[in-house]
Amino acid sequence: MSPSVLDIDLIWKALGTITDPEIPVLSLVEMKIIRDVQVTRDAIRVVISPTFIGCPALEQMKSEIRARLAGIGFKQVEIETTFAPPWTTELLADDAKEKLRSFGIAPPPGGEGELIALLLLPVACPFCNSQQTRLDSEFGATLCKQIYFCDNCRQPFERFKPI
């Protein structure tokens, strides 16, 4: 079936059901990894931007995008990766950050500014909201996370890196 501009809502809705393989509480649309969808005469073009360039989940995301669009009848899909403008944690909406927190991942801080300044802000524990937390490991189980420890509730937790 050839796509038409009338299908755009349907396409976004289908894409909105694909969850991030490393953060299953958010969809690729909420993550703003899927940046744009264009409907041309014979294909759907999906523009994605990776959170971290080396993210190993990218290939899985691409195959899920193809599978989901094939599932609603669109077989001709082009996926373009862009770095301009770069994906940054500023793109995450407040409700997306709240979903991260309720999943046990401390969300990245909001607001613009030099990355290095964002890194110095206190990090609230996603479980007890205490700011008595400390960085335990600068790197974590995935490229986009670090490991913190909460001295108040004595729990380790993951934090989404500001980027």
Partner: peptide
């Protein structure tokens, strides 16, 4: 240290991603 194991594994993955770019 386990933290350094994680760190250098992460950095390796980042550098390979940059290489691909």
């Amino acid at each position: 240290l386990i933290e350094e194991d994680i760190a250098f594994s992460n950095i390796a993955q980042d550098e390979l991603g940059h290489s691909l770019a």
